[in-house]
């Protein structure tokens, strides 16, 4: 790496950069959740939001020098894996019954 580039960049990264990255990823997850109409893409946006929250847990775990944040993000991963299994089974059932993946067309519970 050229020396002028090393001087330009700080030696350590502020904690808030990690939190801002997490906020950006979470907002993009919200955007995908709200504006996509494919049910599988909506589901993937939820996974993106869970990942953003995990990054916050691990960043604060670093800041507090404790391992608890890692345990919490481990549990979030477990719940996400269980959620993916059940959610994809629900998507399979919806597709079998209605032959569509568009969430706008699955509206039988609408008043």
């Amino acid at each position: 790496m050229p020396p002028e580039l090393t001087q330009l960049l700080p030696a350590s990264v502020p904690l808030s950069w990690y939190l801002v990255l997490s906020a950006i990823l979470f907002s993009l997850g919200i955007a995908g959740f709200l504006f996509r109409r494919n049910i599988i893409t909506v589901f993937m946006s939820i996974e993106l939001m869970l990942n953003a929250v995990n990054l916050t847990f691990v960043a604060f775990s670093y800041h507090l020098k404790q391992v608890d944040g890692h345990i919490f993000s481990f549990f979030v991963m477990v719940v996400a894996a269980a959620e993916a299994a059940v959610g994809l089974a629900i998507i399979l059932t919806v597709f079998k019954n209605r032959a569509t993946l568009e969430i706008d067309e699955v509206s039988s519970m609408k008043l």
Partner: peptide
């Protein structure tokens, strides 16, 4: 608060 690689190895 700054993050420096290698300062926390509790994970």
């Amino acid at each position: 608060a700054a993050v420096k690689f290698g300062e926390f190895t509790g994970g």
